[in-house]
Nucleic acid binder design. Structure first.
Length: 504
RNA sequence: GGGCCUGUAGCUCAGUCGGUAGAGCAGGCGGCUCUUAACCGCAAGGUCCAGGGUUCGAACCCCUGCAGGCCCGCCA
């Protein structure tokens, strides 16, 4: 850090000289403060020049910049509720008081201010400061006040800098928390119980993904980080819970792009004595509710558009009909698997001689149909070979009772009428293992054992929370809704390249 | 894994034909009692992502690597 060092040294010197006057640079609290928004609200409707000397107020936050005009100065202050201008003048602070403040105050410092609410002659709601207190010195300068922090790499690696300098980032992540609170509240209101199940599993199953592996020293045993919540939650249904959900992190040892991160939050929900038709209606109600809760964090136009999109009923298409229509392959379910492999390979999928029909159908669907599903759409009644955990369709042979919800061309959720016959479950696992080799759902023996005790008819859904948030907050990249997405090592040791010619 | 693009002051960005780097903001000094991207003046601030090569001379051309972005592939 070349001249950053000089900037920091200057700020350290200001801090030290303040300490020498007996002022603590890092006091322990700042009592009786009010949000800056409260002061702005009080001043609403007051004319320029208004003064409220009988209502002294204390506010605290980050000083954004300093506009010094001789015997006055203006300092915008930001806290979580918004911004308020501090008005510093010799009239309230005295000659020496103002001079002293300007000696130590830097943009980025955290300060507390006590003063009286005023509206300046130019009409800006302000606090005429009688006393300014340093609450924490910023040794690093904040990003440029007008352009802010642009560097996408720094925004991810040092998210705190992004948050402290970009109000829209703070707003977006506030939106994340508020929407998830609304989600939990909605599920609670629907009668579901929130539960927590283990992140560390002997065998991570319930989805098709490579797990992260870790080691439990005490048991001297390798554990895996969960890739889904499904099998644990269904055990709870066996045990007598009738409506449960969990929202929590799952881990899939995979690459990262605009719709995938290796660590993400999943919502899974299981509902006994109900089927996927009941669940479809619940998902519609839930998303409609969440779209309303997202509105305060969006532009009015985006809020309106998203609420309109998520107003039930959503579109419904049959998996097989949609695939046949968009691919131009009639009778796709009756095609021999060799033909399906050939067609899948033709659209760029990685196909092996043992790739099963379900895999090829998934790939063909992903290529031909998914990009067309921009508005919320339920894709229903998948071929049986595409999934091992769903129950046979009650009227369509060769299909299962399943729906996936798509929006903007990506998958938001996946639901089944759950398979609850232990013998068929075991057969499906083994069938997958036989045809897919490594590419298979791990066999969870204890889960099958649980089913042998009897699981009521049940329906369940899994949704990627970040994708849900991308949809509701109207952003294009999953990193925009993950506070601390993973990044590569910042400064790997540089080594001379082996192919470079020796100097001489 | 493949293609394209990016990396220069604390931040945001210029940098022509290869001739030892520039602006604005922030910081320093001076001025100004209503600014709000305040303004005016002065001075200062650089591992040009890293390593190597070509050249009298490289931020610029070449090679390799690293990090990031976009697209494609892979991945429930």
């Amino acid at each position: 850090m070349p001249t950053g060092e000089e900037l920091e040294r200057e700020r350290r010197e200001k801090r030290e000289s303040l300490s020498r006057t007996g002022t603590h640079a890092y006091p322990h609290n700042y009592p009786d403060r009010v949000p800056t928004r409260a002061v702005r609200d009080e001043l609403k409707g007051s004319p320029p020049g208004a003064i409220h000397p009988d209502h002294p107020r204390r506010v605290a936050g980050r000083a954004l910049s300093i506009r010094h005009l001789g015997r006055t100065a203006f300092v915008p202050l930001r806290d979580q509720s918004g911004e308020l201008q501090l008005f510093l003048s010799v009239d309230h602070l005295g000659e020496e008081g103002l001079r002293a403040v300007l000696r130590w105050l830097d943009p980025g410092d955290l300060v507390g201010a006590e003063g009286i609410p005023v509206v300046t002659r130019r009409g800006e709601p302000s606090l005429a400061v009688r006393s300014l207190t340093l609450l924490a010195k910023a040794l690093r300068p904040p990003p440029e006040k007008w352009h802010g922090l642009k560097d996408p790499e720094v925004r991810l690696r040092q998210r705190y800098v992004d948050l402290l300098s970009s109000p829209e980032t703070l707003t977006r992540f506030t939106g994340r928390s508020v929407i998830l609170r609304a989600l939990r509240h909605h599920l609670d209101e629907e009668g579901f119980l929130g539960v927590e199940t283990p992140v560390l599993e002997r065998v991570a199953s319930g989805a098709l993904a490579r797990p992260f592996v870790t080691h439990y020293n005490f048991l001297d045993e390798d554990y895996q980080l969960r890739i889904a919540l499904e099998l644990r939650l269904k055990r709870l249904i066996v045990g007598g819970f009738e409506k449960v959900y969990e929202i929590g992190p799952v881990f899939r040892n995979e690459d990262l792009d605009s719709t995938h991160v290796p660590e993400f939050s999943e919502l899974e929900l299981y509902w006994a004595y109900a089927d996927y038709h009941d669940l479809r209606a619940l998902v519609e109600r839930m998303l409609h509710h969440l779209a309303r809760s997202a509105a305060p964090f969006l532009s009015p136009e985006a809020a309106e558009r998203i609420q309109r999109s998520f107003t039930p009923p959503f579109a419904r298409v049959d998996f097989v009909h949609a695939l046949e229509q968009h691919s131009g392959l009639p009778g796709v379910l009756d095609l021999p698997v060799e033909t399906l492999r050939e067609k899948a390979r033709a659209v760029g999928a990685t196909v092996t001689p043992s790739s099963p029909a379900g895999y090829c159908l998934d790939k063909l669907f992903a290529h031909h149909v998914e990009p067309t599903l921009q508005e919320p759409t339920f894709v229903e009644d998948h071929p049986r070979s595409t999934t091992p955990l769903a129950k046979q369709h009650r009227s369509l042979p060769g299909r299962v009772e399943r729906f996936e919800l798509f929006y903007r061309g990506f998958e938001l959720g996946n639901a089944y009428t759950e398979l609850n016959d232990p013998d068929e479950q075991l057969a499906r696992f083994e069938e997958q293992r036989a045809t897919r080799g490594e590419e298979t759902y791990a066999l969870d023996e204890d889960f099958v054992e649980a089913l042998r005790y009897g699981m009521p008819p049940t329906t369940g859904v899994g949704m990627g929370v970040e994708r849900l948030l991308m949809s509701l907050l109207d952003v294009a990249s999953i990193k925009d809704v993950v506070l601390f997405p993973p990044t590569r090592r910042a400064d790997p040791p540089s080594r001379p390249s082996p192919s470079s010619k020796p100097s001489g």
